[in-house]
Write a protein that binds this DNA or RNA. Structure first.
Lengths: 384, 384
DNA sequence: TTCATGAACGAAATCGATTTTCGCAAAACC
DNA sequence: GGTTTTGCGAAAATCGATTTCGTTCATGAA
């Protein structure tokens, strides 16, 4: 593999001269145009590529960013989440001429320490932690090593700049949307105890707050795993099963609910399946919302009204945040939290609240036992 | 950041001695146990991590693998495909103490050349090309640089070792399964012209071959985009829309088909939606199969009978293949193609062929115009 | 002619490791 | 006692770049 020395030998100049020409650094010392073009020609003909390891050594910067994607507590992390984040990070890094070093993705927790040591060892310029569990003892060693770190959807109260989704705003948008459609009795379909997923806790609290603010608290309720007594399924955090069981439990309660706010799209899908089985039409009889605007949200009938999780953007923002820290060699940049703003995506699973009924009728409404054919208007719309 | 020299100064020995102790290389020259432990203690207290760039320089190996994920022709590559492949690669690489350098993911084609130059520049030990378009002019420069390369689902007839899915075997398994269920009139629901996706061509040809072998050729047909005249939708390769349109077209043909073999899960999902709209029950009236066993295949009612694409395994195998090449410094390893074996996953969308009907009745069967409620047996099964 | 000036380039130090070579003790052997 | 062996560890070369500091030579001005 060609080196500076090879080119120097061929062209009869010193390696220093070759370096100056090839890195295009005229401020160091002028090189004659004739010599320069001779050197460039030789480099091209040898297929020369500067050894970035050697360069990193002397430049004291590897122009590389490390990315660690932590596993989701209680299951595999969603590919629908990982992939666009990685894309966003790669694109943004590339624009700034940085590379991305990916050592681990979704492996057991104990690997985190080893991974971060490896990043340290490779002298990456900074690290992005995705889905980082809020554990100071894992963060401390990297920060002690002087490695700038930013998080994406990082949990906990750590001294860590981060780009997190604004869960509260998302839930607020959903609840307001439903309220405007005339819904007064909502239920939150949750996933699991707040101890496991911080996102869940935030969304559930946001639901309670929003509902309280609109004066609907009395008619609303929260359904989560603690109530249905359902164990964590093998598929873990995807939790379609949660939605199914939660819906099942809710139906058994005979509550006059007209709209369901699901923790995420998959919970909504699970609930939708149970509603289909029960012959309850969405959105005519009940409205249903998801969260994340994931891949699956348009795959069902009806398509889900949901909240977009701008996950690609968050990857980009994280890179920008990290690079901003790198630009200040004194490392005095304050800890910042960027809240990525979700956006309400209205599709077909929400509609006007059904006309108020007496409690008996409402109870009956949850027990229609056959699936209605689609309305002809609906079908026409789908055809086009 | 601590260096060998720092440790040497503290412990009063030379850097060479420190290196020998820390790399645990007793064959070079014996170091006294007392000195060794003193050195190790100093290294630990300084939080020393060897600079891998410096090591790469002298060792002439970076212990790093480059991964390039090419965009899918005509659209974004599926996250359901990328994510598990990356996981497989990362896990396998990690076991062998290699790191993974990811520079690009799903970016325009023109970046491939620049990306590969970057890998060359970083002196990665080998490169894995995922979904690599079969273009020699892109491959030649890397191979000329002496970089070992392996492909995953690589196209074309290049001198490139690869791990590809055995599409033929998958389709054969599906067709055989349907044949055993008594189906005699099958249709292949395709995606697009064979010019765009090589996978599609392989699967379609495999379908035709399998059907011919079973003597069913007369009753079977292929539906693809060329027939329905449908343009590539924005969502590109996902092609749920293709399935919908293909099904629509097929219904209009009034063919007595009892089973549908879809190009992939998403095409199957699209077809399923159209069948639902038409009030045709799956699998009672018609059987339907997908391909890839992707995330979505269990999200629908009925869940899809499909073929698993062992994508995580393929990532692992690719790493092993690459490492096998690296183990032979003479680089005389022959080009190998590993065909990853798909596995038939039978779920609820396939069932026994309906009793033969006269052509008129068969035609009528495709035009039931309401959605049937689920059978009670089915519901009971879902409850548990 | 001499001296300052500047253009063009070379020499050498440096980054942080690994590894070979070699020196110097103390111990072992005859 | 002299010589060899052995155990330990220092010194120095090396990997492939970047960068500082000179050096050489030509040119123009005094």
């Amino acid at each position: 593999m060609a080196t500076l020395k090879d080119i120097a030998k061929i062209t009869g100049v010193s390696t220093g001269t070759v370096s100056k020409v090839l890195t295009d650094a005229p401020e160091l010392s002028r090189i004659g145009e004739e010599t320069a073009s001779r050197i460039r020609a030789a480099a091209a003909s040898l297929g020369y590529r500067a050894n970035r390891n050697a360069r990193a050594l002397v430049m004291q910067t590897s122009m590389t960013l490390g990315v660690y994607i932590a596993p989701h507590p209680g299951g595999r992390i969603s590919p629908l989440y990982v992939s666009p984040i990685l894309e966003g990070i790669c694109e943004a890094a590339q624009e700034k001429l940085y590379d991305v070093l990916l050592i681990n993705i979704d492996t057991p927790d104990r690997d985190l320490r080893r991974t971060l040591e490896k990043y340290h060892s490779k002298r990456v310029d900074g690290v992005i932690l995705v889905n980082f569990p809020g554990r100071m003892e894992l963060l401390a060693p990297i920060q002690a090593a002087g490695l700038p770190v930013v998080g994406i959807d990082a949990f906990g109260d750590l001294p860590l700049s981060r780009v997190n989704l604004d869960n509260e705003a998302g839930i607020r948008a959903v609840v307001t949307h439903l309220h405007q459609l005339g819904h007064r009795q909502l239920a939150f379909l949750g996933e699991q105890g707040t101890s496991v997923s911080r996102d869940h806790g935030l969304r559930q609290q946001a639901f309670e707050a929003a509902v309280r603010k609109l004066g609907l608290a009395a008619g609303c309720q929260v359904v989560d795993r603690e109530q249905t007594g359902f164990q964590i399924p093998r598929e873990g955090a995807y939790c379609r099963e949660d939605g199914y069981r939660g819906m099942d439990w809710l139906l058994a309660q005979h509550q006059p609910v007209t709209a369901l706010v699901a923790y995420n799209d998959l919970v909504a899908i699970g609930a939708l399946r149970r509603l289909n089985e029960a012959g309850i039409r969405v959105p005519e009889q009940i409205s249903l919302t998801g969260f994340d605007d994931s891949f699956v949200s348009t795959h069902f009938l009806p398509s889900l009204t949901t909240v977009s999780h701008p996950v690609n953007q968050m990857g980009r923002r994280a890179v920008e945040l990290l690079l901003a820290v790198l630009a200040h060699p004194e490392r005095t940049v304050a800890v910042r939290t960027i809240l990525a703003q979700p956006e309400l995506v209205v599709r077909d699973s929400t509609g006007p609240a059904p006309q108020p009924l007496c409690p008996r009728a409402a109870r009956h409404r949850l027990h229609v036992d056959f699936i209605q054919p689609l309305s002809s208007k609906k079908r026409a719309q789908l055809q086009k």
